[in-house]
């Protein structure tokens, strides 16, 4: 193990876990001689110090119980809403297509005919009239 990359990996490991005595001795000897590896070690230790100096944040609210579902905000994604509106519009247009109009009209006519038939008054006819064809 002679190259700096291997030693720098060891420096990184050394920050997280203890090394074996042999590894630690080799590392110490190398660091004493190598400015690049010393710089890497200092940088890693500084980074740790900087990040550990960051304060922990406090929650603005205490632990709250979950709100019931009817009080929760519903956040629908825009594409889903747009697709839903398009689908509704399309089904409405299909419903009001020309064939549908025709069907509605023909239904109305048949209803009227039925009404006309319904109001015809049937009168009793004599057997003589029937025989004469009137």
């Amino acid at each position: 193990m002679n190259n700096c990359e291997e030693f720098q990996k060891l420096i990184s490991v050394c920050l997280d876990e203890p090394l074996t005595t042999e590894q630690q001795n080799k590392l110490d000897v190398h660091i004493a001689q190598c400015a690049d590896c010393r710089t890497f070690q200092e940088s890693a230790i500084n980074l740790r110090g900087l990040i550990r100096s960051l304060p922990f944040q406090s929650m603005a609210q205490p632990l709250r119980r979950p709100s019931p579902w009817w009080r929760r905000k519903i956040a629908l994604p825009f594409p889903a809403v747009a697709a839903g509106i398009l689908l509704l519009a399309a089904s409405w247009l299909i419903h009001l297509s020309p064939t549908q109009f025709e069907r509605v009209e023909s239904d109305a006519e048949s209803f009227l005919v039925f009404e006309q038939i319904d109001i015809i008054k049937l009168e009793p006819v004599s057997a003589v009239k029937l025989a004469n064809g009137n």
Binding site: Q8, K9, S12, V13, L15, D16, T39, F40, A44, L47
Partner: peptide
């Protein structure tokens, strides 16, 4: 995890 931590530290040193 060890390798990733090494790479992160190395990258940060280069950024510095």
């Amino acid at each position: 995890v060890r390798i990733r931590l090494y790479r992160i530290r190395k990258r940060i040193q280069e950024k510095e």
